[in-house]
Lab assay of single mutants.
Amino acid sequence: MVYKIRDKETGKVYEVTIDEETNEITVYDVKTGKPVKTVNMTIEELKEAGYEVEPV
């Protein structure tokens, strides 16, 4: 599923895909559409880390 996340401190917005089964999150560069990095976190962990998470 695709989400937009926003860093509450910097205001930067990222587009991510989240595999609900493995909790693998792939972060994409919004301008190029290319993957930047992959992390292993849940949506709740993202929120605790200071991100706003919205489904696209």
Rank of each mutant, 00 (worst) to 15 (best):
M1H: 11
M1L: 13
M1N: 10
M1Y: 11
M1D: 07
M1P: 15
M1K: 15
M1A: 12
V2W: 15
V2G: 08
V2A: 11
Y3P: 00
Y3M: 08
Y3C: 08
Y3V: 06
Y3N: 02
Y3A: 04
K4M: 11
K4I: 14
K4C: 13
K4H: 13
K4P: 01
K4A: 06
K4N: 06
K4F: 12
I5K: 00
I5S: 00
I5E: 00
I5T: 00
R6Y: 12
R6N: 04
R6V: 13
R6W: 13
D7F: 05
D7T: 00
D7N: 13
D7A: 03
D7W: 03
D7R: 01
D7G: 01
D7Q: 06
K8Y: 05
K8W: 06
K8P: 13
K8H: 06
K8Q: 06
K8F: 05
K8I: 10
K8N: 05
K8C: 10
K8E: 03
K8L: 09
E9M: 13
E9A: 14
E9S: 13
E9Q: 13
E9Y: 13
E9L: 15
E9C: 15
E9G: 09
E9V: 14
E9P: 01
T10H: 03
T10A: 01
T10F: 02
T10W: 02
T10K: 02
T10L: 02
T10S: 09
T10G: 02
G11I: 00
G11H: 04
G11S: 03
G11A: 02
G11D: 04
G11P: 00
K12E: 13
K12C: 15
K12N: 11
K12R: 12
K12A: 13
K12T: 12
K12Y: 09
K12V: 13
K12W: 09
K12I: 14
V13F: 08
V13W: 13
V13Q: 06
V13P: 01
V13K: 03
Y14L: 03
Y14E: 01
Y14W: 12
Y14K: 00
E15R: 10
E15L: 15
V16N: 00
V16H: 00
V16E: 00
T17C: 08
T17N: 06
T17E: 06
T17F: 10
T17G: 04
T17P: 00
T17S: 10
T17A: 07
I18K: 02
I18D: 00
I18L: 07
I18Y: 15
I18R: 05
I18P: 00
I18S: 02
D19Q: 07
D19M: 05
D19T: 05
D19I: 06
D19R: 07
E20F: 14
E20T: 14
E20V: 13
E20D: 10
E20A: 12
E20Y: 13
E20S: 12
E21R: 11
E21T: 12
E21A: 13
E21L: 11
E21G: 09
E21Q: 12
T22Q: 08
T22A: 10
T22N: 13
T22L: 11
T22W: 05
N23W: 07
N23T: 06
N23G: 14
N23V: 06
N23E: 06
E24A: 10
E24Y: 10
E24D: 07
E24T: 15
E24I: 15
E24G: 05
E24N: 10
E24K: 11
E24M: 15
I25D: 00
I25G: 02
I25T: 04
I25Y: 03
I25A: 05
I25L: 11
I25S: 01
I25W: 04
T26Q: 05
T26L: 06
T26Y: 06
T26D: 01
V27T: 03
V27C: 15
V27L: 15
V27Y: 14
V27M: 15
V27D: 00
V27F: 15
Y28S: 04
Y28W: 14
Y28C: 08
Y28H: 08
D29C: 07
D29G: 02
D29F: 02
D29T: 01
D29V: 02
D29A: 02
D29Y: 02
D29N: 05
D29E: 06
D29S: 06
V30N: 11
V30T: 13
V30P: 15
V30Y: 13
V30H: 12
V30I: 14
K31G: 13
K31M: 14
K31L: 15
K31D: 15
T32G: 05
T32E: 07
T32S: 09
G33D: 03
G33M: 07
G33S: 05
G33N: 06
G33V: 01
G33W: 06
K34H: 10
K34N: 11
K34W: 10
K34A: 11
K34C: 15
K34G: 04
K34M: 12
K34Q: 11
P35W: 13
P35G: 03
P35Q: 07
V36N: 03
V36G: 04
V36D: 04
V36T: 08
V36M: 10
V36H: 05
V36F: 10
V36Q: 05
V36E: 05
V36W: 10
K37N: 07
K37C: 15
K37Q: 09
K37T: 11
K37R: 11
K37D: 05
K37W: 15
T38M: 09
T38C: 13
T38V: 12
V39R: 02
V39Y: 14
V39I: 14
V39T: 05
V39N: 04
V39P: 04
V39D: 04
V39K: 04
N40W: 14
N40H: 14
N40R: 12
N40Y: 15
N40G: 07
N40P: 06
N40K: 14
N40F: 15
M41C: 14
M41Y: 05
M41K: 04
M41V: 08
T42C: 02
T42V: 01
T42Y: 01
T42H: 03
T42G: 06
T42L: 02
T42A: 03
T42W: 00
T42E: 01
T42P: 02
T42K: 05
I43K: 04
I43C: 07
I43A: 03
I43L: 13
I43N: 01
I43R: 04
I43H: 03
I43W: 09
E44P: 06
E44K: 10
E44Q: 11
E44C: 09
E44T: 10
E44A: 12
E44H: 09
E45V: 04
E45R: 06
E45A: 11
E45H: 07
E45M: 09
E45S: 07
L46E: 00
L46T: 00
L46C: 06
L46F: 09
L46Y: 04
L46M: 06
L46H: 00
L46R: 00
K47Q: 11
K47T: 08
K47F: 12
K47G: 08
K47A: 11
K47I: 13
K47L: 14
K47S: 09
K47C: 08
E48T: 10
E48R: 10
E48P: 02
E48A: 11
E48L: 12
E48K: 12
A49H: 11
A49Y: 10
A49C: 15
A49S: 12
A49M: 12
A49F: 09
G50K: 04
G50W: 04
G50A: 05
G50C: 06
G50I: 05
G50H: 04
Y51F: 12
Y51R: 01
Y51V: 03
Y51I: 03
Y51L: 03
E52P: 02
E52M: 06
E52Y: 07
E52H: 07
E52V: 08
V53M: 08
V53N: 02
V53W: 08
E54W: 15
E54S: 10
E54L: 14
E54P: 03
E54K: 04
P55K: 09
P55H: 09
P55C: 12
P55L: 13
P55F: 11
P55S: 12
P55E: 11
V56Y: 10
V56I: 12
V56Q: 09
V56G: 09
V56D: 07
V56T: 10
